[in-house]
Amino acid sequence: MVNGFSPATLQEALEIRARHSVTPYAGGTDLMINPDPDAVYLFVNHIPEMKQIEQRGDQLHLGAACTYTQLLEHPLTPAILKAAIDLIAAPAIRNEGTIGGNIANGSAKADSVLIFFVADASLKLNSQSAERIIPIRDFYRERKQLDLRPDELITEIILPTKWLDHYYYKKVGARKALAISRVVFAGLLTWQDDVIAHCATAFGAVSGVVLRCPELDALLIGKTRSEAQAAKAGYLAAFGDMIAPIQGRVSAEYRKEVCLNLLTDFLTSNGI
């Protein structure tokens, strides 16, 4: 018997969250693997406010309880996010699993989270008394350590869409479906008037949290093609210093080599 609450509105959910020690449960695809018989669940998968998808100016607001399938089928979902979601697990899990859950799991191998990192997305966190909007990079303190208070829920992901059109995405898993990322990389690069207007990269599954180094990507921003080509070696070397992968089911050396290969290919494919 599962003990839990099924609130109908966000307001109601936040009240319960404030009063009880509950585990938020959206799709449940992570939680049901090792069910805690003593847990009390707060089911947030039917809260309308958390299932909305809405474009406001340059920002796409995604309800945290949106399922992968919902996003895969939605016309407003950016192609890079669809590319990532398409390789997550398998249809049955995509039908239930949510992006808010992917974030709350706290893993650096979460494939939708990588896209939120490279896009410099922010999260909207609500409690009964307050609302906070913080960059996703600040939300992840370290592996499984999230800036989420016991009375808060992740309600929305705010995704800036301006730079998402020109993307590079590659996931390395042990097979084609139902595969946890062994290395996953996303890159964004936009040329405007022959200079790089925007460059952002992110690496998943290499460290405790998704690796995103805007200060290094800034080395290329504002550069012409020839300037970028001249800066390429330094840029790659700087990432070489930053990427210190964890040893896991594949070796750290493999992870690092693949990261740098993909980063190089990302530049090459952009003519750099």
Partner: peptide, 12 residues
């Protein structure tokens, strides 16, 4: 477990 012992899926 099936997440650690990798066998081909239908996609493979």
């Amino acid at each position: 477990s099936f997440s650690d012992y990798i066998i081909p899926t239908a996609m493979d």
